[in-house]
Amino acid sequence: MLHPTIELPLHETASQTAGPYVHIGLIPHQAGFDIFEKNFSNVLVKPETKGERIRLEGRVLDGTGSPTKDILLEIWQANAAGRYNHPADRQEGKAIDPAFRGWGRTGTDFESGVWHFETIKPGRVIGRHGHKPMAPHINLWLAARGINIGLSTRIYFSDEAEANAADPVLRMVDPPGRRQTLIAERSVRNGAVVYTFDVRLQGEGETVFFDV
């Protein structure tokens, strides 16, 4: 039905900060106790998951450049074939990987402020309206004390320069220098692939955040 001018019957519930003790509800072992039999985690891969294993890590810096230590981070990503494990993804010719949900959560470490995920590098997903494929990317969402409404951003990969240059979302970001804030740097550590991605909440080099 078309309702071009009428008011919606309901309004979205207002967001509030996750607060400093977000771990109690969402990562209880980090708060310091065990309660649930099954816990969500920062490890998205199982032995049978398809794709290149990567470690994604970084820090979240505040407006003074100091690492924050109480941030909740969640990622949502496609599988190695570039398909989301969700009924709305009907891309043809790309299989769901039953061993990959594509979602994980973690918190920055209370001492070091470093966070990390163990996941796979996603494939390319079709863009809006199916016009252009997007470059491989991971959707990142942050919530914490002092953050009144969750922040959305994307993580792209430094070794995908060609795909990044054609990505419909990156191309939109202006000035172009800000695109660099969305690109994780690839390195190899003890034979494992690591992508480093620091989030700068405010000030010099401020990360691009999206109103999704």
Partner: peptide
């Protein structure tokens, strides 16, 4: 709410029209 002072982006959010990345989510 004082903690928000150093944890709030100063630049505008970049508006992003929905693609599959936004309309899908974990089940």
């Amino acid at each position: 709410y004082k903690t928000s002072v150093l944890r709030s982006p100063r630049l505008a959010l970049w508006s992003l029209q929905n693609s599959l990345s936004e309309v899908t989510g974990p089940v």
